[in-house]
Amino acid sequence: MASAIPSIRIKRVYAAAEAEDGARVLVDRLWPRGISKARAALDLWFKEIAPSPGLRAWFHQDPAHWPAFAERYRAELDRHPAAVEQLAEFARKGRLTLIYAAHDPEHNHALVLADYLRACLAEA
């Protein structure tokens, strides 16, 4: 019998923290503007799992680059299995909420990361 895939959600850092968020992990390389550490209510700021500075600058939240960005970011994640495993451990313990600051809820790296983690956990 296969085990259920842990719950992984994404949420903007500017939205209020809630008890049902579970573990809250900021997955941005840069600290979000105007947010205090107390308001962010994070369990971890995991800069290392964010897209590389070069990839982030190239994408610059341009929806036209979205498919290529997602592919390139997945390739970066493939090269960092220890970091992915560290994040997967949070998900195995209960609900995991990936926190991000990008304005676009449909074109951001947290979406790619959440899908990548779900796939990794489904394979395990």
Rank of each mutant, 00 (worst) to 15 (best):
Y14P: 03
L87V: 06
L117V: 11
H109D: 08
P67H: 12
A17F: 04
T97K: 03
Q86K: 14
V84Y: 01
A4E: 14
L26Y: 04
A57T: 12
G22F: 05
T97Y: 04
I35L: 14
S7I: 14
A88D: 01
A40I: 04
L44K: 09
V84Q: 01
V27G: 05
D43A: 09
P32T: 02
R9M: 05
R118D: 07
A19G: 00
C120I: 05
E20C: 06
D78E: 15
A119R: 15
G22L: 08
A4I: 11
L44Q: 07
R79Q: 15
Y14M: 07
Y14I: 01
K37E: 05
L121F: 06
L98T: 08
L77S: 06
A70I: 01
P53V: 00
E48K: 01
P105Y: 15
K37F: 02
H109W: 10
A23G: 06
E48Y: 00
E123Y: 04
L121W: 07
M1K: 11
V84W: 05
R33I: 08
E85F: 04
I5N: 09
A83M: 09
D115G: 15
A110T: 01
Y73Q: 15
F69N: 11
A75Y: 02
R12F: 11
V13M: 07
A50L: 03
L96V: 11
A23S: 15
D21I: 03
A15Q: 12
L98E: 04
L42N: 08
A82G: 03
L98I: 00
H107Y: 14
P81Y: 00
P6D: 08
A70H: 00
P53T: 05
P67Y: 08
A91P: 05
L98S: 04
D115M: 00
A64S: 13
I99N: 02
R79V: 00
E123F: 07
L30W: 06
A83V: 15
L55W: 04
I49Q: 00
L113A: 04
S7G: 01
A119G: 15
D104V: 11
I10G: 03
A91I: 03
R39F: 09
R9I: 06
K47G: 00
P32I: 07
A101C: 13
R29M: 13
H80Y: 14
H107F: 08
Y14V: 03
S52H: 14
F59E: 04
T97E: 09
F69R: 01
K37P: 08
T97L: 13
E18H: 13
S52M: 09
A102C: 11
P53D: 07
R24N: 12
A88S: 14
D43Y: 01
R79H: 14
C120T: 02
